[in-house]
Structures are given as C-alpha cells and as structure tokens.
C-alpha cells in the first residue's frame, strides 16, 4: 500500500504537468494511442521475460516521433495519422501475444492497471522521470508555452518549433507509459486529460494551470486509491471515476462563478 501511494502521487504530478499540453494542444488522442501502441513493447517483454518498461517506452517514443514527423511531412490531420499508426502497433502487440496462448495475469495488470504490484524499481524510474520533467519545464517553460500557444509566432522569434514539438510529444509519451502501471493501458489517457481539463476550466492564467492540475490530479489519485482499498475495487478504474467526478464538480463550480 505504501509503494502504491508513493507511485500514485508521483504519477499524478507527472500526468498533471504533461496533461496540460495534451489538453491545450488538443491531443487527447495522442496519449490514448501511445498507451495502446505500447502493447507491442509490453508483449515483447512478456514473451522474452524482460522488464516491460524499456520496450514500452521504445514503442511509445517511436509512435510520438513517427506522428510528429508525418504531421510535418504530409497533409493528413493529426487524428488520421495517430489512428493509422497506433492501430498498426496495437495489432502487432495482439499478434505477438497470440503466439503464446493461455491466461496471462501480468498482461491483465497492464491493461487495467495494478498499483499494488508497483515495485521500488518502478518508483525510482518514476522519480527520475518526474525530476527530468520538472527540469525541462523550468528550463524551457517560455518556449514550451509559446510553441503550445502560437507556434507560428514562436518560430518568428527564432524558436525551433520542430524541436519543441518533438520534445512535448516524447514527454507526453513517457508520462503515459510510466502511468500505465497505475491505471492501465485502457484508462491511462484519463489521467493526463481529466485533471488538466478540470484545471483549464478554473485557471485564470497558464501559470495557474500547473498548481490546479496537480492538486486535482493528486486528489483524484489519493481518494481513488484509498477508496479502492476499502471498497475492494480496481485501483485504476477507481482513480479514473474519482477524477471524472472531480471534473464535473469543477465544471459546476466554474459555471456558478462565471455567472456571478
């Protein structure tokens, strides 16, 4: 339980930070696609008896790079490209898994999350990713914000928008993969989307989105995991349900305060 709580706190902060860019750049589909594409890496890991994380990260980052590249070099829309590539990678994952039939309890935990199976090694990886994310955010804050808000104006100011678009998409992919163990492939996108979307409703500035998203994400994760412990429900699904309930509460609050 202790490890589960520590992991859920780290993942909540990480997803809140990069979820802001998912919401503001209207890339909801990206985190879902990364999670599904990671199945290829997870399947290879299961088949070879290796740790899932490096291979899932490789699959997720490959998807992010492929989508960013194709977006710049084709006239197809984001969602079309994402739909093509992630279904391809997800299909490969399913084919690989079908080579070794039988019940796979470890696979079930990747699909739906299993916070209670988090190891100390997982927590160390999460901490490293969080520290790197925080450093990236502190060093490149202005450039990341400018590219997310108005890439054309950013490029006129000499900012290498291509570089930062790759950086944002790769960071979103890494945050997604790291969070898979908490809530699973099927629901991980919610952990990036829902707290950031809630924060957007009530934030009076971009800067304010960070504390708001982090607080909402932490509340959802902690209330979710404690509830799941006492109600004996799946932790990932419970976190997503709590996060969505918080979203509707924030939505109601924002409507009331806007009227006044």
């Amino acid at each position: 339980m202790q490890r589960a709580l520590i992991a859920s706190v780290i993942v909540a902060v990480l997803c809140a930070i990069w979820g802001i860019f998912v919401v503001l750049r209207k890339q909801a589909y990206l985190s879902d696609a990364v999670a599904h594409a990671s199945l290829t890496g997870i399947a290879i890991g299961i088949l070879l008896g290796w740790s899932y994380l490096p291979l899932a990260l490789l699959a997720g980052i490959t998807l992010a790079i492929a989508i960013t590249y194709l977006k710049k070099h084709s006239n197809l829309a984001d969602d079309t490209l994402i739909g093509i590539i992630y279904t391809f990678m997800f299909a490969i994952g399913i084919i690989l898994l079908s080579l070794f039939p039988g019940y796979r309890p470890d696979l079930f935990s990747y699909l739906f999350g299993s916070l209670l199976s988090v190891t100390w090694a997982d927590i160390i990886v999460n901490i490293v990713v969080l520290i790197i994310s925080a450093l990236i955010m502190m060093i490149f804050y202005r450039k990341l914000l400018y590219v997310a808000f108005d890439a054309e104006a950013a490029s006129i100011r000499g900012i290498n928008t291509n570089l930062y678009e790759y950086l944002i998409n790769i960071a979103i992919s890494i945050a997604t993969i790291v969070a898979i163990k908490s809530v699973g492939i099927v629901m991980v996108a919610a952990l990036l989307l829902v707290p950031a979307a809630s924060a957007k409703l009530i934030s009076k500035s971009f800067k304010q989105m960070f504390p708001n998203a982090i607080i909402i994400s932490l509340l959802a994760s902690l209330i979710g995991i404690i509830s799941s412990y006492y109600l004996n429900t799946p932790s990932g699904a419970t976190i997503v349900v709590v996060a969505t309930m918080l979203f509707f509460m924030v939505f109601g609050y924002s409507k009331i305060t806007t009227k006044h």
Binding site: L24, A148, F149, D150, I156, R157, F206, Q208
Partner: peptide, 30 residues
C-alpha cells in the same frame, strides 16, 4: 527575429487557451 513583428489573423488564435495578456506579451521578451 531582429526586424519583424507579426500580427496574425486574430481568428487563428486559440481564444480558449488560458493565457493572460501579460503572459502572452511576455513570451516575446526573449
């Protein structure tokens, strides 16, 4: 970057983006 200031069509700006005028202008102060 040295010589040009650019004003886009204002319809190209995402007005739902939660950014203040202060933050938006500060982006240029590099």
């Amino acid at each position: 970057a040295e010589h040009v200031g650019y004003v886009p069509q204002y319809s190209s700006i995402d007005r739902s983006f939660p950014i203040t005028v202060n933050e938006m202008i500060a982006l240029e102060c590099n």
